[in-house]
C-alpha cells in the first residue's frame, strides 16, 4: 500500500533556515542541511526547501545549498522559490534536486510547466498553487507572489490545466487556512483529489495531529506538508506517524 507522505517545509533565506528552531541533537541551529538530516532521521518522507531570498546573491547561495543537501540527504527533496525559467530548473536538477516547485512564474506563463515536464519529466515538476476563497467572488481565486496578488484564475480549472501541461503533483496552499493552525481546507483537497489523476499535497493550517489525520483521510490528500508545527517541536514526526497508523492510514514507520 502506497504510504501517505509527511513533508516538513523549510523556508531558506540567504542559505539559512528562517524559522529558528532548537531541537535536542541538532548541532547547528538554522543550517538547512543539518535540519533536513534531522527530519530525515525522525521519519520525514520527503523535504521541501523554499528559497525566499530576494537577492541574486541569495539565489546563488541556494544552488550551492541544494548541492550540499543532495550529498547529505537520503530521502527525496523538492526545492522551490522564484523558479521562472527552464534554465532555473536545469540548474537545480544539476545540483541534485529530485523535484522543483513552480508557482508565480507558471501562472504568468503556463508554458513553463510544459517546458520543464518535456525536458525532465513530469515527476520533476510540482505545481504549487496558492488560492484564497473570497465570499464576494464566490470561487477560489488563485494568487501569486505569496498570496499578495490576486489573479483571474480559478483553483480547480488551473489545477486541471497544470495537470494537462505535465505537472506531476499539485501542492495547494489555502491562503484562508495558512498560518491559522485551525486545520486544512479539507473539502477542497477532497475535491481536487477526486478530479485529478496526479497526487495532491496539502499545505496550510496544520495545528494538531488531528488536522493531519483529517486531511489525509476525509481530505484524500496524498501528502501533508507543514512548517511551524514541526519546527517548533509541537508535533514530533514519530508520534504523528503512530497516530496516523492507529487511524488506519498507511504510513512508513
Amino acid at each position: 500500500m502506497l504510504a501517505k507522505r509527511i513533508i516538513p517545509c523549510l523556508d531558506v533565506k540567504d542559505g539559512a533556515v528562517v524559522k529558528g528552531i532548537n531541537f535536542e541533537g541538532l548541532r547547528e541551529v538554522g543550517d538547512p542541511v543539518e535540519m533536513g538530516a534531522w527530519y530525515g532521521a525522525q521519519g520525514a518522507d520527503e523535504l521541501v526547501y523554499l528559497d525566499i531570498s530576494a537577492s541574486r546573491e541569495g539565489r546563488s547561495t541556494f544552488t550551492g545549498l541544494v548541492r550540499r543537501i543532495s550529498e547529505r540527504i537520503d530521502i527525496p527533496f523538492t526545492v522551490g522559490g522564484g523558479i521562472s525559467s527552464l534554465a532555473d530548473a536545469a540548474r537545480l536538477l544539476d545540483a541534485g534536486a529530485d523535484k522543483i516547485t513552480v508557482n508565480t512564474a507558471a501562472v504568468l506563463r503556463p508554458e513553463l510547466i510544459s517546458e520543464i515536464a518535456a525536458a525532465y519529466g513530469s515527476q520533476f515538476v510540482v505545481a504549487a498553487i496558492d488560492a484564497r476563497f473570497v465570499p464576494e467572488d464566490g470561487f477560489w481565486r488563485v494568487t501569486t507572489h505569496g498570496g499578495k496578488t490576486p489573479t483571474d484564475r480559478e483553483l480547480f480549472s488551473w489545477a486541471r490545466e497544470v495537470q494537462e501541461r505535465g505537472a506531476g503533483e499539485i501542492l495547494f496552499t489555502s491562503m484562508n487556512h495558512d498560518g491559522t493552525r485551525n486545520g486544512y481546507a479539507v473539502a477542497e483537497y477532497a475535491a481536487l483529489s477526486e478530479r485529478l489523476s496526479i497526487p495532491v499535497i496539502a499545505s496550510g493550517g496544520a495545528g494538531s495531529i488531528g488536522h493531519i489525520v483529517e486531511v489525509l483521510s476525509a481530505g484524500k490528500a496524498d501528502a501533508a506538508l507543514a512548517a511551524s508545527i514541526f519546527h517548533f517541536g509541537e508535533i514530533s514526526i514519530p508520534a504523528l506517524k503512530q497516530s496516523l497508523r492507529e487511524a488506519g492510514i498507511a504510513v512508513r514507520l
Binding site: 500500500m1 502506497l2 507522505r5 518522507d45 515527476q123 506531476g168 489523476s197 497526487p199
Partner: peptide, 11 residues
C-alpha cells in the same frame, strides 16, 4: 483508479 506515476513510499 490509481495515480500514475507510482510515486512515493511503498512496502
Amino acid at each position: 483508479g490509481a495515480k500514475i506515476p507510482h510515486m512515493g513510499w511503498n512496502a
